[in-house]
Design a protein around this nucleic acid. Structure first.
Lengths: 260, 260
DNA sequence: CCGTAACGCGTATGTCATACGCAGAAGGGG
DNA sequence: CCCCTTCTGCGTATGACATACGCGTTACGG
């Protein structure tokens, strides 16, 4: 229906075109004074310094020494800038050492998950960018690919590999969001992380009714809430469960019929 | 430090105060012409009809037959309205039939996850509300409590129960976000869900380089992408993995030493 | 060497959340 | 019984913000 052949083939969503560097740089007009890279880098800097909310077209333009509207010569909309920021800040994956050393899929997938988590923690504002559908940018694909490769020796069906990758990836993101929220609370009030969790525990103790919430009450009394200072605890715990679950699937698949 | 005793005890974050119905209705001024409930209900209606983005203070006020600013007599800020909307739309959990019938923790937790998912699917806009830290509203606590109760017979430590609940809950949410994004894409362009996934597959085929992305290429060739029409597939798959992982943990805990 | 396409950007528009203050309503204390 | 305090609804104003539009300018291709 709306088929419009330009240079390559079909109608890529402008932002993808930009992310893949497929923008046709015309040889006609004046020299561009800016570049996509500079703009995206400036936006990333702003986000890192003052959070995603501080990333406005005006602010980025100012940071880059141009006027607000000139940015629209490089970026079709703010959402596109978001996509590019994500792509730049996340970056491509490092090679997995577990794959090179010939370790099993479990080590490889764990390393993959940790690497992903590290990137998110380095740029917590990434988590504030609303997810816009399935991955289609270069780095997203590269990470996806690496996740599949981590499962290469597992004997899983192709579709299952992707499902597992998706599952783990979503887990990493969820856990990181939790951390980001905690970090936000820490910044919002000017206190220490411990104080935030302590304050949360106090709030809970006030709101929880032992009759209506016996389980949570038991949790509060058990003191399990106060001790674990380890910020990696929930991540490690969840990942371990997830990997166990994948292992169970692999065992099931292994022993069963080799499906076409 | 900033301790200010008002009516009850400490300084609850205004929105929580409202969610728990602890607003001190003063007996002094004129009769309020509106009510929190009416406002929240109107906001929920708007979100259900036109999406969360359509929920502006002006629009809600109009819907309720009042002026924009009058809403601020009931709600301290828009974020508070969000919290209340979430609370209202999510609602309290139904009793778990698996618990009443004496089924095991696995059935109970699966039922719990499905119930949660159903609520999210009924109000996809819920997923667009940024998560604001750990749960502290009545319904959030009730769901949390029910999750813990589902794990009652498991023999897990209190802390582990909560970690599992968090893990499953985050999974449900992640998966729902995926569905919401797909639904959004379906609405944005005017096409059918199948057409959206087909278009995605076409885009991938164009972008994926078989040399650089052998795993994804294999996935695309395997045709695994085209067949599974079942919208519940990823949910069921992920939940099964997760439950298997929890089962492994329970077996480990069961057989091992009963830690303090 | 000129037409044309791309550039930088000023201006304008429309949408929001929300601060501020006023005028009217309604209890409660004298 | 009345007035004063307190709360109500709400008009107005402010300040961000994204972004459409169009103008003057630049520089390459014919």
């Amino acid at each position: 229906m709306a088929e419009k052949s330009s240079s390559g083939g079909g109608d890529l969503p402008a932002s993808l075109e930009a992310a893949w560097g497929l923008r046709a740089r015309p040889a006609k007009g004046p020299k561009p004074g800016l570049s996509l890279e500079r703009i995206v880098a400036a936006a990333v800097d702003v986000a890192s310094a003052d959070g995603l909310a501080a990333v406005s077209m005006g602010r980025v333009a100012q940071e880059v020494g141009a006027s607000t509207m000139s940015l629209y010569r490089y970026v079709s909309a703010k959402d596109e800038l978001y996509v590019l920021m994500q792509e730049a800040a996340f970056g491509p994956p490092e090679p997995l050492s577990a794959l090179e050393s010939g370790a099993g899929w479990r080590e490889a997938l764990a390393e993959w998950a940790s690497a992903q988590r590290d990137r998110l923690h380095a740029h917590l504002w990434l988590l504030r960018i609303p997810v816009g559908g399935p991955p289609a940018t270069p780095n997203s694909l590269a990470w996806w690919e690496q996740g599949i490769q981590a499962l290469e020796g597992s004997g899983l069906a192709e579709g299952d590999k992707t499902s597992v990758v998706l599952l783990v990836s979503n887990f990493v993101r969820s856990e990181a969001v939790l951390m980001a929220d905690l970090a936000a609370a820490v910044v919002a009030r000017g206190v220490s992380p411990d104080e935030v969790t302590a304050s949360y525990e106090r709030t809970l103790k006030r709101l929880v009714d032992p009759a209506r919430h016996p389980g949570i009450s038991r949790l509060l009394e058990s003191g399990a809430m106060s001790e674990p200072d380890d910020p990696d605890y929930e991540f490690t715990f969840g990942l371990e469960r997830l990997l166990d679950g994948v292992e169970a699937l692999i065992r099931k698949t292994d022993g069963g019929v080799k499906s076409a």
